[in-house]
């Protein structure tokens, strides 16, 4: 009761902001897969925030902004994690965050959606598109999808690392976002 009052008042206060729904961080994941000499390697970002307003019945009004704390990267080992933060890769000292802003969401039927947006990393912005599944879980909504990203467009893995024979250009970003609350 008390919680829903707070939620209701937040809804009123924040009616102009994107977020009408709240991300359940403990049940959300942001991961990625890429190929290193044809060997699939998985990694993830531990910390990110997402402001989401998405009603599966009205995808055209969807809004989303996901901000990723790049320093929270885990590519499976201390060597790789240290390397990923360096200048040639994410250059975390100068660019600590990556931002994804949704521009359009289109229903493809059967709970599937096409998502388009702008991804900004290292000060470079590109249009990206992917697919997403939306599934209601009780009063919550699970958004699961993937977006292929070409790392070299953002100069991620610059210099000697630009060789795609060792680290492929394509990185599949995968997300599983559990949001609670009602969309506007």
């Amino acid at each position: 009761m008390f919680r829903s009052l707070i939620a209701a008042s937040l809804l009123l206060i924040g009616s102009n902001a994107i977020a009408a729904q709240t991300l359940v961080t403990g049940k959300s994941q942001l991961s990625f897969t890429f190929k290193q000499m044809n060997t699939p390697v998985d990694g993830n970002f531990k910390n990110f925030t997402a402001k989401i307003n998405f009603n599966p019945a009205k995808p055209e009004t969807a809004k989303a902004e996901i901000i990723v704390d790049l320093a929270s990267i885990d590519v499976g080992g201390p060597d790789g994690n240290g390397e990923a933060k360096k200048k040639a890769w994410f250059d975390i000292a100068s660019n600590p965050k990556a931002t994804f802003t949704a521009t359009s969401v289109k229903a493809l039927g059967g709970g599937k959606f096409e998502t388009k947006g702008k991804l900004m990393m290292k000060g470079i912005s590109h249009d990206v598109s992917g697919t997403m599944m939306a599934k209601a879980i009780g009063n919550d909504l699970l958004l699961e999808g993937s977006i292929p990203v070409l790392r070299l467009q953002y100069k991620i893995g610059d210099g000697v690392w630009a060789d795609t024979g060792t680290v492929a250009d394509e990185v599949i970003v995968k997300y599983k976002l559990l949001v609670t609350g009602k969309a506007d």
Partner: peptide, 11 residues
């Protein structure tokens, strides 16, 4: 140090 050459040699 980590480099494409190191990845190649590990493989």
């Amino acid at each position: 140090p980590l480099s494409p050459d190191k990845f190649k040699m590990i493989n």
